[in-house]
Nucleic acid binder design. Structure first.
Length: 892
RNA sequence: GCCGGGAUGGCGGAAUGGCAUACGCGCGGGUUUCAAAAACCCGUGACCGCAAGGUCGUGUGGGUUCAAGUCCCACUCCCGGCACCA
């Protein structure tokens, strides 16, 4: 008697142990071509959420697929273990960040093992371990030697609550990404990597990544790099002679400049205000503008504001004297911090000029011949140049007017210039739990790098986290006081640590040689594995980790440490996992369990009714309008109110719609969860989590289990040859089987479309269920083996158990991906639709391979067709062999 | 506003220019059962029709083609990213 229900607890554990014992993911098979699959390693928070589950499952499926395809697959895992959460926990609880982190790593590792993801655990490391961050520090010194490290005073984003500086990428809508407090602007002396020097190269690299990275990621990076072409033109302050260079992408409109604005923090502001009659007022206004913050986002939301400095600048192209303003929309961090104002042809300048009564001078005549007097807004289109000295009368199509720049260069009034939005990478943090920046300040020698032999600069352990504010490192005397490596006198150690994104910019290389104590890595090992063949992770890292890692790799290349300059050949970004979330107008987000249902008549719904309504909501069968139309009301069990809303949104703690992946594995087993996550949507799209969905996957697994178990006594013994002569049902089964292999392979190779791969095997299973009683033992075996092999990357424990029960000693993962038999897959007989004026009017069952002429003859001879053609004139017959016949007719 | 991606049944989604809706979920009906939320079978785009069958149908409007979900032009809406970047 076959087992009725698939016993995942016993089976999954058995195979995990077996893979471990066999060294499936750890043993290197150097006779095979190498292939490196990497998932973005996690911050060990202690609990992996369902988003991680999708991420790592995708990676695992790719790993197993590539193993079956005969590659020597490297699949490592490690921990991005420096960072704020551990330190915040230390401040809260007094538990040392190291201990906190190690505990969480242990918990995450257990979860990963239980999920069945295959990693080479021999290569595991954590970035917070000294033998890793030693090299993070070493790279800092190497980058510094190469001139890629700068220390400069810069307006930085300061989070008062975290007491640290944040990178622009970590400021979300003016708030700290981590803690949500308001971010202030502060001038501070900080360490930077000169990423801006690589702007052009980062952009140029997109060429090679196109088609291999998602379009969206490349588009986001392009925007982040923000290349724009134009000219730098030197204006001069009339009263003092100070130069005021400006960057413009519209040099063609230079003759239309009617004012100049500079950023509130522009150095000229203070200088000019010093002697001016309204100086105090100007300084006061500038201070006010600065206090509001300089994040472009905030400025956008804000009314344009400015103050006239009382000074003027001279336009180098025509000698015009125009007023100099301080304006809140001018950004010190972009271009030169000064902007020329052309109200006629720039919307922002138009608005500013209208507000302050600044004149508008037209220099482009639109085709309709109109002027600013009749305009509602600035004219930014093409036209004829007017009022522009030597260029008057020429056609203006702005972007394509290099003539102006040539003229500026010839006249010595300006020059061609390319500007980038990409800024240097602010890498210093005033926090404890990161890699210490290895320099010492000495009163006589200045900034002195820690000698390589003294690396790593270890984090001190004697820190009290629960008292005091600011950087705990600065409070450790044993850490701060250090002899100057140059002169030996007592110096002061740098107490800033590095941004965790520095750690994660090179971890993918360390996996090639994780235990090397003498060097960052062995060049031959890196040459073998890197760059990463397939990287997998969330798209939220597009302008952070993914751009830092690219920069870092290019810099390592320039240091001669690696011979490639892109870290990740292919990138796959998985979609978000979403689930319906409920929001009560009084109680905010509430869990699904706290939602009750009321009938149209106002009475409470029965349990079954409520379950049915909520199920339809979860499956998107009912939206809020549909629910209201049906008269059902959702009620918040917390407050009893019925003002309840719901939406499909990313799974998470904040919306109270989290899915506990551990609990799911406990209920259904890892394979069921894997199957569910991969079977519905393509993996780069949004995934919707429903209870019905996971139940359906469980039923599918069990149905397949029964099919295989019930077939065991009827299959031939392994290795039995396929008979040469087969009857029609067996030929049909074989045909479908080999078509399935072809299509599954295509689905996976063509972009990891596991949903269609699963659909193809389902089709085969449906046919097998209907023909199973007629199947020849050898054909039954072949079919089941191909089903099991095709699904093995997706449901590995299940597949290996089936494989073994089918009489194999070795794991399914020591086999090869099935080779399709194209001869067996070929159709014998096909159905050809005959269309008359586009409508199917007959179907011909014909042998495959008939010519167009034969098809046409058969189609026209068909009784149905002839009846339809009665009294009509055949205008044209198109036949597509193997496809269809189309007859175009006219009335006779 | 700019950039990227979309729009196909009740839902997730299939479809080298060639039978739209594969596969699955849900739903309806049936079988089995003390009873099932389990299993198995049948049905399931809309409309008209007792039926045979017919008409319509892939966001909207045009176009190319014997043939368009797919190609071209114009637009609408949705999701995501960026956004006073000179």
């Amino acid at each position: 008697m076959a087992e009725v229900e698939y016993n995942f607890e016993k089976i999954e554990e058995k195979w995990r142990k077996r893979w471990e014992k066999d060294g499936l993911f750890a043993n290197r098979r150097d006779d095979r071509p190498p292939y490196y699959v990497l998932n973005m390693y996690p911050y060990p928070s202690g609990v992996l959420h369902i988003g991680h589950f999708l991420n790592y499952t995708l990676g695992d499926v790719m790993v197993r697929y590539k193993i079956l395809r005969g590659f020597n697959v490297l699949s490592p895992m490690g921990w991005d273990s420096f960072g704020l959460p551990a330190e915040n926990a230390a401040i809260r609880t007094g538990i040392h960040p190291h201990e906190f982190t190690e505990n969480n790593i242990a918990r995450c590792r257990r979860q990963m093992l239980r999920a069945g993801w295959g990693y080479d655990w021999n290569r595991e490391f954590a970035t917070s371990h000294a033998d890793y961050y030693k090299w993070t520090q070493w790279f800092f010194l190497k980058f510094r030697e190469k001139g890629l490290v700068v220390k400069k005073t810069a307006p930085v984003n300061w989070c008062g609550s975290c007491q640290t500086v944040l990178a622009n990428e970590q400021v979300k809508e003016g708030e700290c990404e981590r803690c949500g407090s308001r971010v202030e602007q502060k001038d501070m002396n900080q360490w930077f990597y000169r990423m801006s020097a690589y702007a052009e190269r980062l952009l140029a690299g997109h060429e090679a990544l196109r088609g291999k990275w998602p379009d969206a990621v490349l588009a986001m990076q392009e925007e982040w790099i923000g290349r724009s072409e134009g000219a730098e033109v030197e204006f001069r302050v009339k009263e003092t002679g100070d130069p005021v260079p400006v960057f413009t992408t519209r040099p063609d409109t230079l003759w239309g400049v009617t004012f100049m604005s500079v950023a509130p923090e522009h150095p000229l502001v203070e200088k000019l205000a010093a002697g001016a009659p309204r100086g105090r007022e100007v300084l006061e206004a500038a201070r006010r503008m600065r206090a509001i913050g300089t994040s472009a986002r905030e400025l956008a939301a804000q009314e344009k504001e400015g103050i006239f400095t009382g000074c003027h600048v001279v336009n180098p192209v025509n000698g015009a004297e125009i007023p100099l303003w301080v304006a809140n929309f001018a950004l010190m961090s972009y271009g030169t911090g000064a902007v020329m104002g052309v109200p006629a042809h720039d919307q922002r300048d138009w608005e500013f000029a209208k507000k302050y009564g600044i004149p508008v001078v037209q220099v482009v005549l639109p085709p309709d011949g109109s002027g600013p007097g009749t305009w509602e807004k600035a004219y930014v289109g093409a036209g004829e140049v007017v009022n522009s000295g030597p260029f008057t009368g020429e056609p203006d199509n702005f972007k394509a007017m290099p003539g102006v720049i040539d003229w500026l260069e010839k006249e010595g009034r300006g020059r061609r210039k390319v500007n980038y939005r990409l800024r240097d990478w602010l890498l210093s943090r005033q926090r404890y739990w990161g890699a210490p920046i290895p320099v010492i300040y000495c009163d006589s020698c200045g900034i002195v790098p820690v000698p390589e032999k003294d690396l790593p600069v270890l984090l001190p352990t004697d820190i009290d986290f629960t008292h005091g504010r600011g950087n705990p490192l600065a409070r450790s005397k044993s850490f701060v006081n250090a002899p100057c490596p140059k002169c030996g006198r007592t110096g002061r150690r740098e107490t800033d640590t590095m941004d965790t994104f520095v750690d994660s910019s090179w971890y993918q290389i360390r996996f090639a040689d994780p235990a090397n104590g003498r060097a960052c890595w062995d060049a031959a090992k890196v040459a073998k594995w890197l760059p990463v063949d397939q990287y997998i992770g969330g798209i939220e890292h597009a302008t952070m980790h993914l751009i830092y890692a690219r920069f870092f790799t290019m810099a390592l290349h320039d240091l001669g440490l690696v011979d490639f300059d892109e870290p990740f050949t292919r990138l796959f970004c998985q979609g978000m996992v979403c689930k319906v979330a409920y929001r009560c107008e009084t109680c905010k987000w509430i869990p699904a369990e706290a939602v009750a249902v009321r009938r149209p008549d106002g009475s409470d719904a029965s349990e079954e009714e409520a379950a049915a309504v909520l199920k339809r909501v979860e499956n998107q069968g009912l939206d809020e309008a549909g629910l209201a139309a049906a008269g059902w009301k959702l009620v918040c069990a917390g407050c009893g109110g019925d003002r309840l809303h719901f939406e499909m949104t990313k799974i998470g703690k904040s919306k109270l719609n989290a899915v506990d992946s551990d609990a799911m594995i406990e209920r259904f087993g890892a394979d069921t969860v894997r199957l569910y996550m991969l079977s519905d949507s393509p993996p780069d799209r949004m995934q919707i989590w429903t209870e019905d969905g996971i139940n359906g996957a469980w039923r599918t697994i069990n149905r397949l289990w029964r099919l295989v178990m019930d077939s065991l006594e009827r299959i031939s013994s392994p290795g039995t040859p396929i008979p040469a002569e087969l009857d029609a049902p067996n030929r049909a089964l074989r045909r479908k089987t080999h078509q399935c292999v072809l299509k599954v392979t295509e689905s996976i190779e063509g972009g990891y479309q596991f949903n269609t791969a699963i659909a193809r095997t389902n089709e085969l299973l449906n046919l097998l269920r209907s023909l199973r009683d007629q199947a020849h033992p050898a054909i039954l075996r072949e079919t089941l083996e191909i089903v099991v092999l095709s699904l093995s990357p997706i449901i590995p424990h299940f597949a290996d158990e089936c494989w073994s029960r089918m009489g194999h000693d070795r794991s399914v993962f020591s086999e090869s991906w099935p080779e399709p038999d194209r001869e067996a897959a070929r159709e014998e007989e096909i159905e050809i639709p005959v269309r008359i004026n586009g409508k199917v009017r007959a179907r011909l069952t014909v042998p495959a391979g008939l010519s167009g002429g034969e098809l046409e003859k058969l189609a026209l001879a068909d009784g149905n067709v002839q009846a339809r053609l009665e009294g009509k004139v055949v205008a044209r017959v198109v036949t597509v062999p193997g496809r269809l016949v189309n007859i175009a007719v006219k009335q006779g």
